[in-house]
Amino acid sequence: MADTPIFPVTRAAALERLAQFVPHAGVDYARRRNFDQGPGHHDAVSRLSAALRRRVLSEADVVDAVAAAHGPDAAASFISEVFWRTYWKGWLEQRPAIWTRYLAGRDAARQMLRRDPDLAERHGDAVAGHTGIDAFDHWMGELAQTGYLHNWARMQVASIWIFTLGLPWELGAAHFLDQLRDGDPASNTLSWRWVAGLHTAGKAYLADADRITAMTGGRFAPKGLAGATTIPADAPPPAAAPWRTPQTLDIGAPALVWITPEDAGLEQDPALSRLPVRGVVACRSHAGCAADATALDDALERAAAQWQAPAQWIESPADLADAARAAGTSQIVTGFVPVGPLADALPAIRALVESEGLALAEHLRAWDNTVWPHCRRGFFALKQEIPALLPLLLKEPA
């Protein structure tokens, strides 16, 4: 999927889209944000999620621009949505077992598909958008064609998938993560759990036909939706525990910067401005979709310009040690790798790098370090803290 200004993943295109959106990020956003007007008409929302997911734009970039234009109070609705993204990240970092549990459930559900032809047929119809539920089928087609769904539509799809179609939530979450241009392990997994009634105990989200008709401007009139929820069986989530402590970087030591889709904007972080960078790399094996490839290619170019260092693609993390030695460094620096597929692979990558006598350091952004301690309970506990957190996170007025 090529990069376009509709759902940008390069920094220049994302900044252009941010400038277009900022005038509408106050009361207009609060009034219109939940209406899904269909493909090509998602102009009531920022459409910056793909850039934020890769930190091509940072949360601070976006919130700072919106707060400066409208003030934190008038822009509270949009700012709250940005904090939801941070909340999901911080909550999962403090409960990584939930990700492991999701993977086990996904794999078990895939085994069930092989044993149960009826389940396999219903799953195939859902993925193909052949259920006969007009809104659901349209949204599955839009997802396949564009890699995007309006956030409110995602909730409806997940609810219909789980409660009307009776499909395992893990299979829906896996399909979304594969298809979404902005697919994020934390936001995706925990949002599906929230709809299923597993995040906030006993509180599931039930899609309503009349509500869907109203919120889509009468485009759909779905029939046969479930009238009640049956919450999937699941063990209670573990208590919050401190997130893992990454190896800290040596800000004075020459470094090879390793850019991943988890943070493709490291050159913008002031905390790294003094880092003596000798080279920049990204792995082709991490360009799993066109959006990732475009974002990483753009990030390599920006990082090379910022640090005046050579930038290149390497095939995989197995080539990191050779790239570091070629750059004359013994320190590899990357952005903090949050819970998800890359974090699952990180222990083996670290062991390989360290076996070559190199250090692999991760940079945890100040935004995360400041907000994640407030992500231990429900979102609204964090929401109450947003006014006090904003002065710590935003730029000083000029």
Rank of each mutant, 00 (worst) to 15 (best):
D36R: 06
R31Y: 00
R33P: 00
D61I: 10
T86P: 00
Y87R: 02
A67F: 01
S49Y: 08
A65R: 07
L57H: 08
I79A: 14
I79H: 14
D36W: 02
R55I: 00
K89T: 01
A69P: 01
A60Q: 12
R32P: 00
D73H: 12
G90R: 11
Y87E: 01
H70L: 09
A76Q: 12
R85W: 08
G38F: 03
A67H: 10
V66A: 12
F78S: 14
S77Q: 09
L57D: 05
R47D: 01
D43A: 12
T86G: 13
H41P: 00
G71Q: 04
R54E: 08
A65I: 06
F83M: 09
F78A: 15
P72F: 05
A65H: 09
G71H: 05
V63C: 13
R85G: 05
N34Y: 14
A76P: 01
N34F: 15
V45N: 12
D43F: 13
H41F: 09
P39I: 10
S46Y: 09
R33T: 00
S49F: 06
P72W: 07
D36M: 03
I79W: 09
K89D: 13
V82E: 14
L48H: 05
A60E: 08
W91H: 15
D64A: 14
D43P: 00
Y87A: 05
R32G: 00
S58M: 03
L52W: 11
D64S: 14
R85P: 00
N34H: 13
E81Q: 14
D36G: 03
G71F: 03
T86K: 14
R53D: 10
E81L: 11
E59C: 04
G71M: 04
H41D: 08
L48V: 05
R33L: 04
L57V: 06
W88M: 08
A65Y: 09
R55Q: 15
V45G: 05
H70T: 03
D73N: 10
D43Q: 14
L52H: 10
